[in-house]
């Protein structure tokens, strides 16, 4: 009950902030940005091509949402879902414009005398980033939303307008492909 009640309270607070923005109080949009910046930035990081800056895409998602706020219909879903959908469309547009590459992230620096375990862990992270970048868009989006951003599967299903069983299946396939990317590393360790 706790998590659901908290989510509902957030949705009500969103409605209040949205009403204030629509009444002309532009500064009230900051409440929405601060409340949702974590999920939006993490989603953009997981979905944007490496050649683009995910924070720029997240910023553009908020600005686009502000400009189209009058069209947001609360009955069709949560504000967070709407924002995530805008972010997803911007990321997919960026991916179509540029060659899909692995997950966007700052370059990882490895110290020259890093212990072997740390090198293996860094190698695993890079392999998983590359594997995530190589996933088909529906699997990648589903995995990032459910496993990295922490969106409930029902909400992911609503966003993609597919049954929850489809989301479970996509998630399972995404995890299997990602874990398969670790097989050579584990094989090398043994």
């Amino acid at each position: 009950m706790g998590a659901a009640a908290s989510e509902d309270r957030f949705a009500d607070d969103d409605d209040d902030a949205i009403a204030r923005v629509l009444a002309g109080e532009t500064a009230a949009f900051r409440i929405l940005v601060e409340r949702h910046e974590g999920p939006i930035v993490r989603f953009a990081r997981g979905l944007a091509p490496r050649s683009s800056a995910p924070e720029d895409i997240a910023q553009e998602a908020f600005v686009s949402a502000f400009m189209a706020l009058a069209t947001f219909d609360r009955r069709r879903g949560r504000f967070r879902s709407w924002l995530l959908t805008i972010t997803k469309n911007l990321c997919l547009n960026a991916r179509q414009k540029k060659t899909p590459l692995p997950l966007a992230e700052p370059p990882e620096t490895v110290a020259p005398f890093t212990p072997a375990d740390e090198l293996v862990a860094a190698h695993a992270r890079r392999s998983l980033d590359a594997a995530l970048g190589a996933l088909p868009d529906p699997l990648r989006s589903c995995f990032v939303l459910a496993e990295i951003v922490g969106v409930p599967m029902g909400e992911v299903a609503d966003m993609d307008r597919v049954p929850i069983g489809t989301i479970r299946s996509r998630l399972s396939r995404a995890k299997a492909r990602l874990r398969a990317a670790l097989a050579p590393i584990r094989g090398g360790q043994s």
Binding site: G46, A121, A124, L128, D129, E147, I148, K175, L182
Partner: peptide, 10 residues
Amino acid sequence: PFEDWRLDRA
């Protein structure tokens, strides 16, 4: 390492 990576990204 998969779970470590996932938590790191999350």
